[in-house]
Design a protein around this nucleic acid. Structure first.
Lengths: 330, 330
DNA sequence: GTGAAAGCGCTAACAG
DNA sequence: CTGTTAGCGCTTTCAC
């Protein structure tokens, strides 16, 4: 009530200083200790909160970052999205930065005037938006995706390498019939994982079978159809590398129903290290994505860019193989 | 680049009118058709976008709503949270309203100056924040929770009734040994579901056994421990009503492992109608929460409150029993 | 209908 | 170190 109406003027008046001095106080510019203290008291007493938009209009910052996430189901309905939102909110929270969330559905309605900078979580379907933001010179960092044709900072995960390691891990356990349940290939990370898988087989002299690569679009339902197909094959796989832990846990369910013993008869590796997929008596062997680190890096870079235009940076973080129960020698 | 610098002045100049007229145009105030058209052209040509904070400072709206979600794991890491975020983002998106997302961790750092109104998704741990916002007279709607001691609008789900129906449905199938895997009782909806469960048993003359109520905190892991306990009982339950579909699907996993046939030997009812829990060959019988309807109602009420202070409203929406495969007669 | 002018609350020179 | 002052871009009286 009252607090929403108190302005810098009221504070200045009550503290017996000019509004400029109060402004300095708000911006942590050194003051005579006496004044600093008096103002601090008055601010508390009046429960004064500066109007951020007035501040911004006068040239200050909004202390708000935007986060743009594609509304595409495979992304937005995933562990990934919530984890990103959570981590962005969390890292911004400790810095006192607010979060403006925008889901990109089909048209670009992101209002740049409400933020100091933007994090784009992956780019799928909104490539034009990316270009527009770059053109408007909005401080920007893209996560989980490397952008080749636009000069923009990004922090990504080495999906290729992660997939390579996962697949090689299976091969090193003697598996020759390794299937891959892939994600939606419109999503870059899904593509990269397929490539990593292929490359690992090739480098290790294992024949690549087309029938062993199945697209799931990250959906459990789709995964199930594809599993039926895989296990109707003359030579069903002895190992499956999955594009996500959720898909992997569907493999576990499927195996359970079919009485296929994991890992004795079937080895499984996931991707994500999603804690929600760690249940049952079998702990999933998986590739951990450094999502938190990725977000933290992105926030750091964005802060720098907001402070002063820096040159763009491209960072690629490594994944980590987490060895648990679902892989065995054949 | 250019667009981020074009102001109302540029538009006025180029269109040969005063800035006041452009402002009128922006606010859909009737103009002479000639002017309207000219301004429209110039706006498009210059790719002009009004600076929202300047507009707000001058008395206009920001067209931004805040969404506050408790950071508490059981909420924030759930289907519920993502669904709420998704639906809020979606309903606001079509109205051209932006979303300011705030996760409440431990201290109240929500800046009301960046929004026109606030939706609070449940209130757990941040009761003081709620009171502060009410005191500051910020337009506010609480969802998924009825607030008794504060005069505020809310849109909630009838969790009691939903749980009652679920439990009664089991009892009507002849079950006398009905267990309940409850959520975290600090969360109001979890409490209500326990009460609904109890009430249904009582009304139907089924003995209430303390050992049949187990707290899971909405976590699969915890659910598994409690399932072990339940099925070590001298008289294990023949039916389980779960606080969420995720917990229910854990029951399905557990049953599968123990070779307990669902629904022949064990009936299961969930809560949520979470599409992510619809996999495998058994489709879960569950209670559907009208989350989307809830959010839409909340947005509607909030819009009204922003336009003109209305009296507070309290709306309770009914759940729906979705009958699928996991309940059978005993 | 339209224009001129007065702010909204704050920051950032510029003097002192 | 501090106060004075001129805006930031927009809306909104108030005249015309």
């Amino acid at each position: 009530m009252s607090s929403s109406k108190t302005t810098i003027k009221d504070v200045a008046l009550k503290a017996g200083v000019s509004i400029a001095t109060v402004s300095r106080f708000l911006n942590n510019i050194p003051l005579k200790e006496g004044n600093r203290k008096r103002i601090e008291e008055v601010v508390k007493e009046l429960n004064y909160q500066p109007l951020l938009y007035a501040r911004r209009l006068a040239g200050g910052k909004l202390d708000t970052f935007g986060l743009i996430i594609p509304g595409y189901e495979g992304i937005f309905y995933s562990f990934y999205a919530l984890e990103i939102i959570r981590e962005v909110a969390s890292s911004l929270g400790v810095k006192g930065i607010d979060l403006h969330l925008n889901i990109f559905w089909d048209k670009d309605n992101f209002k740049t005037s409400l933020i100091d900078g933007v994090i784009m979580a992956d780019v799928i379907g909104n490539e034009n938006q990316l270009k527009r933001l770059v053109a408007e010179d909005v401080p920007l960092v893209v996560i989980n995706r490397q952008i080749e044709d636009v000069d923009v900072s990004c922090v990504a995960v080495n999906n290729f390498k992660g997939a390579y390691e996962a697949t090689e891990f299976l091969v090193h356990h003697g598996h020759k019939r390794v299937a891959h349940l892939a994600g939606d290939l419109r999503v870059k990370c899904a593509q990269d994982r397929v490539e990593g898988y292929k490359s690992a087989l090739e480098k290790n002299g294992v024949a690549l079978l087309k029938d062993y690569i199945k697209i799931t679009n990250f959906s459990r339902k789709e995964a199930r159809f594809k599993l039926e197909e895989l296990f109707s094959l003359k030579n069903p796989p002895t190992a499956v590398f999955c594009c996500s832990d959720e898909i992997a846990s569907e493999v576990l369910n499927f195996a359970e129903e079919r009485r296929i013993i994991v890992p004795k008869e079937l080895s499984v590796v996931g991707f994500d290290d999603n804690p929600h997929c760690l249940y049952g008596n079998l702990m999933l062997t998986t590739i951990r994505q450094p999502l938190k680190a990725m977000v933290q890096q992105a926030v750091k870079i964005l802060e720098e860019n907001v402070e002063s235009k820096k040159s763009t940076q491209q960072i690629v973080l490594d994944t980590e193989l987490i060895i648990r129960d679902t892989v065995d020698f054949i």
